[in-house]
Amino acid sequence: MLKTMLALVALVAAASAPAQTTDAGGACARLAAQTGLKQQSDGSWRANMLGGVGAALFGGTTGATFQVQPIEGSTAEQALEKACQQERAAIACRVSGPARIIVGTKRGNASIDLASGETAEVGMKGRYLTCRRGK
Rank of each mutant, 00 (worst) to 15 (best):
84 C>L: 08
67 Q>K: 14
68 V>R: 07
2 L>Q: 14
48 N>M: 07
89 A>I: 10
128 Y>D: 06
101 I>F: 11
20 Q>T: 15
73 G>M: 00
120 A>K: 05
1 M>W: 03
51 G>Q: 03
118 E>H: 14
51 G>M: 02
98 P>T: 15
74 S>M: 09
43 G>L: 02
66 F>K: 02
133 R>C: 03
3 K>W: 01
77 E>N: 06
5 M>V: 15
88 R>I: 13
19 A>R: 11
56 A>V: 04
53 V>N: 01
121 E>S: 04
63 G>Y: 14
109 N>K: 06
129 L>W: 07
94 R>D: 08
72 E>L: 09
83 A>I: 00
23 D>S: 14
2 L>V: 14
37 L>H: 06
17 A>N: 11
111 S>G: 11
132 R>V: 11
40 Q>H: 04
25 G>H: 13
53 V>M: 01
3 K>L: 06
128 Y>E: 01
24 A>N: 15
13 A>N: 03
128 Y>K: 05
61 T>E: 03
121 E>L: 04
7 A>F: 11
8 L>T: 13
130 T>S: 12
52 G>N: 10
22 T>M: 01
41 S>W: 12
35 T>M: 04
9 V>P: 03
84 C>I: 14
28 C>L: 01
60 G>T: 11
34 Q>V: 07
52 G>L: 03
79 A>H: 10
105 T>V: 12
86 Q>P: 10
5 M>W: 11
105 T>G: 11
117 G>V: 13
83 A>L: 02
27 A>C: 08
15 A>Q: 15
115 A>R: 06
34 Q>S: 04
2 L>Y: 15
39 Q>I: 03
41 S>D: 15
35 T>L: 00
52 G>I: 07
71 I>S: 06
13 A>C: 02
62 T>L: 06
11 L>H: 13
41 S>L: 05
63 G>V: 12
131 C>S: 09
68 V>K: 05
64 A>D: 05
88 R>S: 13
7 A>Y: 09
12 V>I: 15
117 G>A: 12
82 K>A: 05
103 V>F: 06
5 M>H: 12
134 G>C: 03
118 E>A: 14
3 K>F: 07
51 G>T: 15
40 Q>S: 11
121 E>M: 05
17 A>C: 02
56 A>K: 00
130 T>V: 15
30 R>I: 06
79 A>L: 02
24 A>D: 12
49 M>R: 10
122 V>P: 09
91 I>R: 13
89 A>G: 12
132 R>F: 08
70 P>W: 06
31 L>M: 00
20 Q>N: 13
73 G>L: 00
